[in-house]
Amino acid sequence: MDLSSSLLPLEDNGFERLENAEKVKADLQVCKLSADKEYVKLQDELTSLKELEENLHKESIKSKDIHEKELCVLNQENSKLKKEIEKLKEDLAECNSELSWDGKIEKKVADMKVEFTHMEDAKDDFSDINTRCVFSVTSKIPFKLNQNQALLTFEDAEVAQRLIKTGKHTLNLDRKTTDVKAMPFALGMGIKFELHVTISGKKIDVSEVPELSIPDDWVRDKLELNFYKSEHGGGEVENVKYDKKSRTAVITFLKPGAANGFVRSTKCPFFVNGRHYRLHVSPSTNVHMEKLQLYSGISKNSILLKGIAETEDDEESVQDMIEIHFQKPSNGGGETERIKYVSKGATWVCFEEDA
Rank of each mutant, 00 (worst) to 15 (best):
Y277W: 11
Y277C: 07
L279E: 06
H280F: 14
H280G: 03
H280Y: 14
V281Y: 03
S282F: 06
S282H: 03
P283I: 11
S284W: 00
S284I: 04
V287W: 10
H288T: 08
H288E: 11
H288M: 05
M289A: 11
M289L: 15
M289Y: 12
M289D: 13
M289Q: 15
E290M: 14
E290I: 12
K291C: 12
L292H: 09
Q293A: 09
Q293D: 08
L294C: 12
L294F: 15
Y295T: 06
Y295D: 05
S296Y: 07
S296P: 04
S296G: 08
I298C: 12
I298L: 10
S299K: 05
S299T: 10
S299P: 05
S299C: 15
K300N: 11
K300Y: 08
K300A: 10
N301A: 15
S302D: 02
S302L: 04
I303C: 01
I303Q: 00
I303M: 02
L304G: 00
L304S: 00
L304D: 01
K306L: 01
I308G: 07
I308L: 11
A309Q: 08
A309H: 09
E310H: 08
T311E: 05
T311R: 08
E312H: 04
E312Q: 11
D313A: 08
D313C: 09
D313N: 10
D314E: 14
D314F: 09
E315M: 09
E316C: 06
E316P: 03
E316N: 09
S317D: 14
S317W: 08
S317A: 12
S317E: 14
V318C: 05
V318G: 04
V318R: 03
Q319S: 11
Q319E: 09
D320R: 14
M321I: 07
M321N: 12
M321K: 15
I322W: 03
I322M: 00
I322F: 00
I322N: 01
I322Q: 02
E323T: 10
E323W: 10
E323Q: 12
I324G: 07
I324C: 12
H325A: 05
H325E: 00
H325G: 01
H325W: 00
F326A: 01
F326W: 06
F326G: 05
Q327S: 11
Q327L: 00
K328V: 02
K328A: 10
K328T: 07
P329F: 08
P329I: 07
P329N: 05
S330Y: 02
S330K: 13
S330P: 00
N331A: 06
N331C: 04
G332Y: 02
G332W: 07
G332P: 10
G332Q: 01
G332C: 05
G333S: 01
G333V: 03
G333Q: 01
G334K: 01
E335Y: 10
E335S: 15
E335W: 07
T336A: 10
T336Y: 02
T336P: 08
T336R: 09
E337R: 15
E337V: 15
E337C: 14
E337S: 14
I339Q: 05
I339G: 10
I339Y: 05
I339P: 11
I339F: 08
K340H: 15
K340E: 14
K340L: 14
K340D: 10
Y341H: 05
Y341C: 01
Y341A: 06
V342G: 05
V342S: 02
V342N: 04
S343F: 09
S343E: 14
K344C: 09
G345K: 03
A346S: 12
A346C: 09
